[in-house]
Design a protein around this nucleic acid. Structure first.
Lengths: 218, 218
DNA sequence: GCGACTCTTGATCGAACGGTCAAGGGGCGC
DNA sequence: GCGCCCCTTGACCGTTCGATCAAGAGTCGC
Protein backbone atom coordinates (compact mmCIF):
# COMPACT_ATOMS: atom_id res chain seq x y z
CA UNK A 1 0.00 0.00 0.00
CA UNK A 2 3.00 2.26 0.48
CA UNK A 3 3.86 4.53 -2.37
CA UNK A 4 7.36 5.43 -1.27
CA UNK A 5 10.35 3.84 0.35
CA UNK A 6 10.45 5.21 3.86
CA UNK A 7 13.45 7.09 5.18
CA UNK A 8 14.93 7.82 1.77
CA UNK A 9 17.95 9.58 3.24
CA UNK A 10 18.49 12.26 5.84
CA UNK A 11 15.80 12.34 8.50
CA UNK A 12 12.89 14.37 7.20
CA UNK A 13 11.36 16.95 9.44
CA UNK A 14 8.23 14.88 9.24
CA UNK A 15 9.81 12.32 11.51
CA UNK A 16 10.74 14.56 14.40
CA UNK A 17 8.68 14.99 17.53
CA UNK A 18 5.74 17.33 17.10
CA UNK A 19 3.74 19.58 19.38
CA UNK A 20 -0.01 20.01 19.37
CA UNK A 21 0.29 23.05 17.13
CA UNK A 22 2.53 21.07 14.81
CA UNK A 23 0.04 18.25 14.42
CA UNK A 24 -2.76 20.68 13.69
CA UNK A 25 -0.64 22.39 11.08
CA UNK A 26 0.20 19.13 9.37
CA UNK A 27 -3.48 18.23 9.25
CA UNK A 28 -4.44 21.63 7.87
CA UNK A 29 -1.69 21.41 5.27
CA UNK A 30 -2.81 17.98 4.12
CA UNK A 31 -6.41 19.14 3.83
CA UNK A 32 -5.47 22.25 1.88
CA UNK A 33 -3.06 20.31 -0.31
CA UNK A 34 -5.73 17.76 -1.19
CA UNK A 35 -8.04 20.50 -2.43
CA UNK A 36 -5.37 22.30 -4.41
CA UNK A 37 -3.76 19.21 -5.90
CA UNK A 38 -7.18 17.83 -6.79
CA UNK A 39 -7.90 21.01 -8.70
CA UNK A 40 -4.62 21.83 -10.42
CA UNK A 41 -2.67 18.59 -10.39
CA UNK A 42 0.86 18.24 -9.13
CA UNK A 43 2.72 20.46 -11.55
CA UNK A 44 -0.09 22.99 -11.71
CA UNK A 45 -0.22 23.55 -7.97
CA UNK A 46 1.89 26.21 -6.26
CA UNK A 47 3.32 25.49 -2.88
CA UNK A 48 2.54 29.03 -1.76
CA UNK A 49 -1.09 28.58 -2.76
CA UNK A 50 -1.38 25.53 -0.56
CA UNK A 51 0.33 27.32 2.29
CA UNK A 52 -2.06 30.24 1.98
CA UNK A 53 -5.05 27.91 1.95
CA UNK A 54 -3.72 26.34 5.13
CA UNK A 55 -3.09 29.74 6.71
CA UNK A 56 0.69 29.40 6.78
CA UNK A 57 3.66 30.93 5.07
CA UNK A 58 5.37 29.04 2.30
CA UNK A 59 8.54 28.68 4.35
CA UNK A 60 6.56 27.38 7.25
CA UNK A 61 4.93 24.71 5.11
CA UNK A 62 8.34 23.64 3.88
CA UNK A 63 9.32 23.15 7.50
CA UNK A 64 6.81 20.31 7.72
CA UNK A 65 7.31 18.87 4.23
CA UNK A 66 10.79 19.16 2.82
CA UNK A 67 9.69 19.18 -0.80
CA UNK A 68 6.57 19.60 -2.89
CA UNK A 69 6.85 15.99 -3.92
CA UNK A 70 6.96 14.82 -0.30
CA UNK A 71 3.76 16.70 0.33
CA UNK A 72 2.10 15.29 -2.76
CA UNK A 73 3.00 11.75 -1.81
CA UNK A 74 1.75 12.26 1.72
CA UNK A 75 -1.57 13.55 0.41
CA UNK A 76 -1.89 10.76 -2.12
CA UNK A 77 -1.09 8.09 0.41
CA UNK A 78 -3.60 9.39 2.95
CA UNK A 79 -6.19 9.74 0.21
CA UNK A 80 -5.79 6.34 -1.36
CA UNK A 81 -6.92 4.45 1.69
CA UNK A 82 -10.17 6.35 1.96
CA UNK A 83 -10.58 6.01 -1.77
CA UNK A 84 -10.04 2.26 -1.92
CA UNK A 85 -12.20 1.56 1.10
CA UNK A 86 -15.59 1.58 -0.68
CA UNK A 87 -14.17 -0.74 -3.33
CA UNK A 88 -13.80 -3.59 -0.90
CA UNK A 89 -15.05 -6.83 -2.28
CA UNK A 90 -18.63 -8.04 -2.34
CA UNK A 91 -19.91 -10.74 -0.02
CA UNK A 92 -20.62 -13.80 -2.22
CA UNK A 93 -23.08 -15.15 0.34
CA UNK A 94 -25.43 -12.21 0.00
CA UNK A 95 -28.14 -11.67 -2.53
CA UNK A 96 -26.53 -9.92 -5.52
CA UNK A 97 -29.19 -7.22 -5.69
CA UNK A 98 -28.59 -6.26 -2.07
CA UNK A 99 -24.83 -6.55 -2.23
CA UNK A 100 -24.51 -4.55 -5.46
CA UNK A 101 -26.99 -1.97 -4.20
CA UNK A 102 -24.90 -1.45 -1.09
CA UNK A 103 -21.76 -1.25 -3.17
CA UNK A 104 -23.24 1.44 -5.39
CA UNK A 105 -24.56 3.40 -2.42
CA UNK A 106 -21.19 3.25 -0.70
CA UNK A 107 -19.38 4.42 -3.80
CA UNK A 108 -21.83 7.24 -4.41
CA UNK A 109 -21.56 8.36 -0.79
CA UNK A 110 -17.80 8.49 -1.24
CA UNK A 111 -18.28 10.73 -4.25
CA UNK A 112 -20.42 13.01 -2.12
CA UNK A 113 -18.24 13.02 0.99
CA UNK A 114 -14.79 13.01 -0.56
CA UNK A 115 -15.08 14.57 -3.99
CA UNK A 116 -11.58 16.01 -3.81
CA UNK A 117 -10.13 12.56 -3.18
CA UNK A 118 -12.00 11.25 -6.20
CA UNK A 119 -10.76 14.09 -8.39
CA UNK A 120 -7.18 13.72 -7.20
CA UNK A 121 -7.29 10.06 -8.10
CA UNK A 122 -8.87 10.87 -11.44
CA UNK A 123 -6.13 13.39 -12.23
CA UNK A 124 -3.49 10.83 -11.40
CA UNK A 125 -5.03 8.23 -13.67
CA UNK A 126 -5.68 10.65 -16.53
CA UNK A 127 -2.01 11.57 -16.43
CA UNK A 128 -1.19 7.92 -16.94
CA UNK A 129 -0.90 7.10 -13.24
CA UNK A 130 2.81 7.95 -13.06
CA UNK A 131 2.86 7.37 -9.32
CA UNK A 132 -0.03 5.06 -8.51
CA UNK A 133 0.56 2.65 -11.38
CA UNK A 134 2.21 0.03 -9.13
CA UNK A 135 -0.70 0.28 -6.74
CA UNK A 136 -3.21 -0.16 -9.53
CA UNK A 137 -1.49 -3.24 -10.84
CA UNK A 138 -1.23 -4.84 -7.42
CA UNK A 139 -3.82 -3.71 -4.89
CA UNK A 140 -6.54 -2.57 -7.25
CA UNK A 141 -6.14 -5.44 -9.66
CA UNK A 142 -6.42 -7.83 -6.70
CA UNK A 143 -9.59 -6.16 -5.45
CA UNK A 144 -11.05 -6.32 -8.93
CA UNK A 145 -10.12 -9.96 -9.34
CA UNK A 146 -11.83 -10.85 -6.10
CA UNK A 147 -14.93 -8.81 -6.86
CA UNK A 148 -15.11 -10.19 -10.38
CA UNK A 149 -14.89 -13.71 -8.98
CA UNK A 150 -17.86 -13.09 -6.73
CA UNK A 151 -19.89 -11.69 -9.61
CA UNK A 152 -18.91 -14.60 -11.83
CA UNK A 153 -20.16 -16.95 -9.10
CA UNK A 154 -23.52 -15.24 -9.07
CA UNK A 155 -23.72 -15.56 -12.83
CA UNK A 156 -22.99 -19.27 -12.66
CA UNK A 157 -25.66 -19.70 -10.01
CA UNK A 158 -28.12 -17.95 -12.28
CA UNK A 159 -28.58 -15.12 -9.81
CA UNK A 160 -27.31 -12.70 -12.45
CA UNK A 161 -27.72 -12.60 -16.20
CA UNK A 162 -24.72 -13.23 -18.46
CA UNK A 163 -22.72 -10.17 -17.51
CA UNK A 164 -19.04 -9.40 -17.91
CA UNK A 165 -17.85 -8.90 -14.31
CA UNK A 166 -15.07 -6.43 -14.98
CA UNK A 167 -17.16 -4.29 -17.30
CA UNK A 168 -19.86 -4.26 -14.69
CA UNK A 169 -17.37 -2.99 -12.13
CA UNK A 170 -16.18 -0.29 -14.52
CA UNK A 171 -19.77 0.76 -15.09
CA UNK A 172 -20.40 1.17 -11.40
CA UNK A 173 -17.19 3.09 -10.83
CA UNK A 174 -17.76 5.30 -13.83
CA UNK A 175 -21.33 6.24 -13.04
CA UNK A 176 -20.75 6.93 -9.36
CA UNK A 177 -17.47 8.80 -9.73
CA UNK A 178 -18.92 10.88 -12.51
CA UNK A 179 -20.92 12.87 -9.98
CA UNK A 180 -17.71 13.83 -8.16
CA UNK A 181 -15.22 14.19 -11.00
CA UNK A 182 -17.58 15.99 -13.37
CA UNK A 183 -19.41 17.90 -10.65
CA UNK A 184 -18.75 21.17 -12.46
CA UNK A 185 -20.47 19.84 -15.57
CA UNK A 186 -23.39 18.39 -13.66
CA UNK A 187 -23.73 21.68 -11.80
CA UNK A 188 -23.72 23.63 -15.06
CA UNK A 189 -26.54 21.49 -16.42
CA UNK A 190 -28.43 20.68 -13.27
CA UNK A 191 -27.73 23.61 -10.95
CA UNK A 192 -26.97 21.27 -8.08
CA UNK A 193 -24.73 18.41 -7.01
CA UNK A 194 -24.58 15.45 -4.67
CA UNK A 195 -24.50 17.69 -1.61
CA UNK A 196 -28.19 18.24 -2.27
CA UNK A 197 -29.90 15.30 -0.51
CA UNK A 198 -32.71 15.14 -3.04
CA UNK A 199 -30.26 14.98 -5.92
CA UNK A 200 -28.20 12.37 -4.13
CA UNK A 201 -31.30 10.21 -3.69
CA UNK A 202 -32.21 10.63 -7.34
CA UNK A 203 -28.76 9.67 -8.51
CA UNK A 204 -28.58 6.70 -6.17
CA UNK A 205 -31.96 5.44 -7.22
CA UNK A 206 -31.24 5.85 -10.93
CA UNK A 207 -27.84 4.16 -10.86
CA UNK A 208 -29.02 1.33 -8.67
CA UNK A 209 -32.15 0.63 -10.66
CA UNK A 210 -30.56 0.97 -14.08
CA UNK A 211 -27.60 -1.23 -13.31
CA UNK A 212 -29.49 -3.83 -11.32
CA UNK A 213 -32.21 -4.15 -13.94
CA UNK A 214 -29.45 -4.42 -16.48
CA UNK A 215 -27.75 -7.37 -14.83
CA UNK A 216 -30.42 -9.30 -12.98
CA UNK A 217 -31.82 -12.30 -14.82
CA UNK A 218 -35.03 -11.51 -16.61
CA UNK B 1 -19.34 27.92 -29.74
CA UNK B 2 -16.47 30.36 -29.60
CA UNK B 3 -14.42 30.41 -26.46
CA UNK B 4 -12.70 33.72 -27.03
CA UNK B 5 -13.39 37.12 -28.43
CA UNK B 6 -11.67 37.22 -31.76
CA UNK B 7 -9.05 39.83 -32.56
CA UNK B 8 -8.32 40.81 -28.99
CA UNK B 9 -5.80 43.45 -29.98
CA UNK B 10 -2.79 43.53 -32.24
CA UNK B 11 -3.00 41.14 -35.15
CA UNK B 12 -1.82 37.74 -34.01
CA UNK B 13 0.62 35.87 -36.17
CA UNK B 14 -2.13 33.29 -36.51
CA UNK B 15 -4.00 35.61 -38.78
CA UNK B 16 -1.29 36.26 -41.32
CA UNK B 17 -0.98 34.43 -44.60
CA UNK B 18 0.60 31.04 -44.35
CA UNK B 19 2.65 28.81 -46.59
CA UNK B 20 2.23 25.08 -46.97
CA UNK B 21 5.00 24.49 -44.43
CA UNK B 22 3.30 26.88 -42.07
CA UNK B 23 -0.02 25.09 -42.25
CA UNK B 24 1.63 21.76 -41.62
CA UNK B 25 3.46 23.20 -38.63
CA UNK B 26 0.28 24.59 -37.14
CA UNK B 27 -1.40 21.22 -37.53
CA UNK B 28 1.53 19.41 -35.95
CA UNK B 29 1.61 21.89 -33.08
CA UNK B 30 -2.07 21.48 -32.39
CA UNK B 31 -1.77 17.70 -32.41
CA UNK B 32 1.22 17.74 -30.09
CA UNK B 33 -0.40 20.32 -27.82
CA UNK B 34 -3.54 18.24 -27.50
CA UNK B 35 -1.53 15.26 -26.29
CA UNK B 36 0.56 17.26 -23.85
CA UNK B 37 -2.26 19.39 -22.47
CA UNK B 38 -4.44 16.29 -22.12
CA UNK B 39 -1.74 14.70 -20.01
CA UNK B 40 -0.44 17.55 -17.87
CA UNK B 41 -3.16 20.18 -17.98
CA UNK B 42 -2.58 23.79 -18.84
CA UNK B 43 -0.29 24.85 -16.02
CA UNK B 44 1.52 21.54 -15.95
CA UNK B 45 2.47 21.63 -19.62
CA UNK B 46 5.69 23.24 -20.82
CA UNK B 47 5.71 25.10 -24.05
CA UNK B 48 9.11 23.66 -24.93
CA UNK B 49 7.77 20.14 -24.39
CA UNK B 50 4.99 20.75 -26.90
CA UNK B 51 7.44 22.25 -29.36
CA UNK B 52 9.71 19.24 -29.05
CA UNK B 53 6.80 16.87 -29.56
CA UNK B 54 5.94 18.79 -32.72
CA UNK B 55 9.56 18.76 -33.88
CA UNK B 56 10.04 22.51 -33.57
CA UNK B 57 11.98 24.89 -31.40
CA UNK B 58 10.19 26.77 -28.64
CA UNK B 59 10.75 30.09 -30.37
CA UNK B 60 9.40 28.70 -33.57
CA UNK B 61 6.24 27.54 -31.87
CA UNK B 62 5.80 30.98 -30.36
CA UNK B 63 5.95 32.36 -33.86
CA UNK B 64 2.68 30.62 -34.63
CA UNK B 65 1.00 31.11 -31.26
CA UNK B 66 1.87 34.27 -29.42
CA UNK B 67 1.26 32.86 -25.96
CA UNK B 68 0.72 29.56 -24.23
CA UNK B 69 -2.84 30.57 -23.52
CA UNK B 70 -3.51 31.29 -27.19
CA UNK B 71 -2.32 27.80 -28.02
CA UNK B 72 -4.42 26.24 -25.30
CA UNK B 73 -7.53 28.02 -26.45
CA UNK B 74 -6.90 27.00 -30.04
CA UNK B 75 -6.53 23.37 -29.01
CA UNK B 76 -9.60 23.47 -26.81
CA UNK B 77 -11.70 25.09 -29.49
CA UNK B 78 -10.70 22.60 -32.17
CA UNK B 79 -11.26 19.77 -29.72
CA UNK B 80 -14.65 20.80 -28.47
CA UNK B 81 -16.32 20.45 -31.83
CA UNK B 82 -15.18 16.89 -32.30
CA UNK B 83 -16.05 16.30 -28.70
CA UNK B 84 -19.61 17.61 -28.85
CA UNK B 85 -20.36 15.95 -32.17
CA UNK B 86 -21.31 12.50 -30.83
CA UNK B 87 -23.55 14.16 -28.24
CA UNK B 88 -25.93 15.42 -30.89
CA UNK B 89 -29.50 14.79 -29.96
CA UNK B 90 -31.44 11.59 -30.46
CA UNK B 91 -34.05 11.19 -33.15
CA UNK B 92 -37.43 11.01 -31.38
CA UNK B 93 -38.96 9.18 -34.33
CA UNK B 94 -36.67 6.20 -34.00
CA UNK B 95 -37.03 3.22 -31.77
CA UNK B 96 -35.35 4.08 -28.46
CA UNK B 97 -33.34 0.86 -28.33
CA UNK B 98 -31.85 1.57 -31.77
CA UNK B 99 -31.33 5.26 -31.16
CA UNK B 100 -29.71 4.79 -27.74
CA UNK B 101 -27.61 1.91 -29.04
CA UNK B 102 -26.26 4.12 -31.80
CA UNK B 103 -25.64 6.91 -29.35
CA UNK B 104 -23.62 4.65 -27.08
CA UNK B 105 -21.66 3.19 -29.97
CA UNK B 106 -20.87 6.66 -31.29
CA UNK B 107 -19.70 7.85 -27.90
CA UNK B 108 -17.58 4.77 -27.33
CA UNK B 109 -16.00 5.12 -30.74
CA UNK B 110 -15.11 8.69 -29.84
CA UNK B 111 -13.41 7.41 -26.69
CA UNK B 112 -11.42 5.02 -28.84
CA UNK B 113 -10.55 7.42 -31.65
CA UNK B 114 -10.00 10.62 -29.69
CA UNK B 115 -8.97 9.64 -26.18
CA UNK B 116 -6.79 12.73 -25.78
CA UNK B 117 -9.74 14.97 -26.55
CA UNK B 118 -11.77 13.18 -23.93
CA UNK B 119 -9.01 13.53 -21.34
CA UNK B 120 -8.48 17.19 -22.13
CA UNK B 121 -12.14 17.82 -21.62
CA UNK B 122 -12.08 15.80 -18.40
CA UNK B 123 -9.16 17.81 -17.08
CA UNK B 124 -10.98 21.03 -17.82
CA UNK B 125 -14.10 19.92 -16.01
CA UNK B 126 -12.24 18.46 -13.03
CA UNK B 127 -10.55 21.81 -12.62
CA UNK B 128 -13.96 23.40 -12.36
CA UNK B 129 -14.26 24.22 -16.06
CA UNK B 130 -12.59 27.64 -15.71
CA UNK B 131 -12.70 28.17 -19.45
CA UNK B 132 -15.46 25.98 -20.82
CA UNK B 133 -18.02 26.83 -18.14
CA UNK B 134 -19.93 29.24 -20.39
CA UNK B 135 -20.02 26.62 -23.11
CA UNK B 136 -21.32 24.00 -20.69
CA UNK B 137 -24.09 26.26 -19.48
CA UNK B 138 -25.15 27.22 -22.99
CA UNK B 139 -24.34 24.71 -25.69
CA UNK B 140 -24.08 21.56 -23.61
CA UNK B 141 -27.09 22.38 -21.45
CA UNK B 142 -29.10 22.95 -24.63
CA UNK B 143 -28.03 19.62 -26.09
CA UNK B 144 -28.92 17.90 -22.85
CA UNK B 145 -32.29 19.61 -22.68
CA UNK B 146 -33.14 18.46 -26.19
CA UNK B 147 -31.92 14.92 -25.62
CA UNK B 148 -33.72 14.73 -22.29
CA UNK B 149 -36.91 15.89 -23.98
CA UNK B 150 -36.68 13.08 -26.50
CA UNK B 151 -36.13 10.51 -23.78
CA UNK B 152 -38.99 11.93 -21.76
CA UNK B 153 -41.20 11.53 -24.82
CA UNK B 154 -40.28 7.87 -25.11
CA UNK B 155 -41.10 7.39 -21.43
CA UNK B 156 -44.51 8.98 -21.88
CA UNK B 157 -45.18 6.73 -24.87
CA UNK B 158 -44.31 3.74 -22.74
CA UNK B 159 -41.37 2.89 -24.97
CA UNK B 160 -39.07 3.30 -21.98
CA UNK B 161 -39.52 2.52 -18.31
CA UNK B 162 -39.75 5.34 -15.78
CA UNK B 163 -36.23 6.67 -16.17
CA UNK B 164 -34.73 10.02 -15.25
CA UNK B 165 -33.55 11.38 -18.61
CA UNK B 166 -30.64 13.45 -17.37
CA UNK B 167 -29.30 10.71 -15.12
CA UNK B 168 -29.54 8.33 -18.04
CA UNK B 169 -27.46 10.71 -20.12
CA UNK B 170 -24.89 11.00 -17.36
CA UNK B 171 -24.70 7.23 -17.14
CA UNK B 172 -24.00 6.88 -20.83
CA UNK B 173 -21.39 9.60 -20.81
CA UNK B 174 -19.72 8.24 -17.70
CA UNK B 175 -19.49 4.64 -18.82
CA UNK B 176 -18.27 5.41 -22.32
CA UNK B 177 -15.79 8.13 -21.36
CA UNK B 178 -14.42 5.95 -18.60
CA UNK B 179 -12.61 3.82 -21.15
CA UNK B 180 -10.75 6.88 -22.46
CA UNK B 181 -10.20 8.93 -19.30
CA UNK B 182 -9.26 6.00 -17.09
CA UNK B 183 -7.48 4.06 -19.80
CA UNK B 184 -4.39 3.77 -17.62
CA UNK B 185 -6.44 2.11 -14.90
CA UNK B 186 -8.25 -0.20 -17.29
CA UNK B 187 -4.92 -1.12 -18.83
CA UNK B 188 -3.42 -1.87 -15.42
CA UNK B 189 -6.28 -4.24 -14.64
CA UNK B 190 -7.07 -5.57 -18.05
CA UNK B 191 -3.81 -5.36 -19.96
CA UNK B 192 -5.55 -3.78 -22.94
CA UNK B 193 -7.71 -0.86 -24.00
CA UNK B 194 -10.27 0.19 -26.60
CA UNK B 195 -7.71 0.05 -29.38
CA UNK B 196 -8.05 -3.72 -29.12
CA UNK B 197 -11.05 -4.51 -31.36
CA UNK B 198 -12.13 -7.45 -29.21
CA UNK B 199 -12.10 -5.33 -26.10
CA UNK B 200 -13.97 -2.55 -27.87
CA UNK B 201 -16.67 -5.01 -28.89
CA UNK B 202 -16.93 -6.36 -25.35
CA UNK B 203 -17.24 -2.90 -23.87
CA UNK B 204 -19.78 -1.81 -26.44
CA UNK B 205 -21.87 -4.88 -25.95
CA UNK B 206 -21.77 -4.63 -22.17
CA UNK B 207 -22.66 -0.96 -21.97
CA UNK B 208 -25.40 -1.24 -24.56
CA UNK B 209 -26.99 -4.30 -23.04
CA UNK B 210 -26.73 -3.17 -19.43
CA UNK B 211 -28.11 0.29 -20.04
CA UNK B 212 -30.80 -0.75 -22.50
CA UNK B 213 -32.03 -3.57 -20.30
CA UNK B 214 -32.00 -1.08 -17.44
CA UNK B 215 -34.29 1.40 -19.14
CA UNK B 216 -36.51 -0.54 -21.51
CA UNK B 217 -39.96 -1.37 -20.13
CA UNK B 218 -40.07 -4.84 -18.65
C1' DG C 1 12.72 31.47 35.11
C1' DC C 2 15.77 28.71 32.67
C1' DG C 3 16.95 25.77 29.01
C1' DA C 4 15.90 22.92 25.12
C1' DC C 5 13.07 22.09 21.95
C1' DT C 6 9.60 23.21 18.24
C1' DC C 7 7.96 26.53 15.41
C1' DT C 8 7.96 30.86 12.46
C1' DT C 9 9.80 34.34 9.63
C1' DG C 10 12.11 37.22 5.95
C1' DA C 11 15.83 37.49 3.00
C1' DT C 12 17.80 35.16 -0.62
C1' DC C 13 19.35 31.78 -4.20
C1' DG C 14 19.25 29.15 -8.55
C1' DA C 15 16.80 26.94 -11.97
C1' DA C 16 12.98 26.75 -15.00
C1' DC C 17 9.90 28.86 -17.76
C1' DG C 18 7.14 32.14 -20.68
C1' DG C 19 8.04 35.45 -23.74
C1' DT C 20 11.01 39.05 -26.67
C1' DC C 21 14.31 40.58 -30.03
C1' DA C 22 17.21 41.02 -33.85
C1' DA C 23 19.23 38.71 -37.44
C1' DG C 24 19.48 35.64 -40.94
C1' DG C 25 17.80 31.60 -44.05
C1' DG C 26 14.74 29.92 -47.68
C1' DG C 27 11.01 29.42 -50.82
C1' DC C 28 7.73 31.40 -53.94
C1' DG C 29 5.95 34.72 -57.35
C1' DC C 30 7.25 37.68 -60.91
C1' DG D 1 17.53 35.81 -60.62
C1' DC D 2 15.66 39.10 -57.82
C1' DG D 3 13.07 40.67 -54.11
C1' DC D 4 9.53 40.07 -50.86
C1' DC D 5 7.83 37.80 -47.13
C1' DC D 6 7.32 33.68 -44.40
C1' DC D 7 9.88 30.99 -41.57
C1' DT D 8 13.69 29.65 -38.27
C1' DT D 9 17.14 30.41 -35.00
C1' DG D 10 19.96 31.56 -30.81
C1' DA D 11 20.81 34.81 -27.45
C1' DC D 12 18.59 37.15 -23.96
C1' DC D 13 15.24 39.12 -20.29
C1' DG D 14 12.07 39.21 -16.24
C1' DT D 15 9.33 36.50 -13.38
C1' DT D 16 7.91 32.77 -10.93
C1' DC D 17 8.64 29.06 -8.10
C1' DG D 18 10.75 25.53 -5.29
C1' DA D 19 14.00 25.37 -1.85
C1' DT D 20 17.77 27.04 1.63
C1' DC D 21 19.52 29.56 5.48
C1' DA D 22 20.21 32.00 9.58
C1' DA D 23 18.04 34.13 13.17
C1' DG D 24 14.55 34.86 16.31
C1' DA D 25 9.81 33.93 18.79
C1' DG D 26 6.90 30.64 21.44
C1' DT D 27 6.20 27.10 24.43
C1' DC D 28 6.69 23.32 27.38
C1' DG D 29 8.93 20.62 31.16
C1' DC D 30 11.32 21.15 35.22
Amino acid sequence: MDLVDDAPGPAARQDTARSRAGQENVARILDAALDVFATFGFRGSRIEQIAAAAGLSKTNLLYYFRTKEDLYLAVLQRTLDMWLEPLRALDPARDPADALGDYIARKLAASRDEPAASRLFALEVIQGAPIVAPLLEKTLAAIVAETAGTIEGWVEQGKLGPVSPRHLIYSIWATTQHYADFAAQVRAIEGRDLSDPAFFAEACEHVTRTILQGVLPR
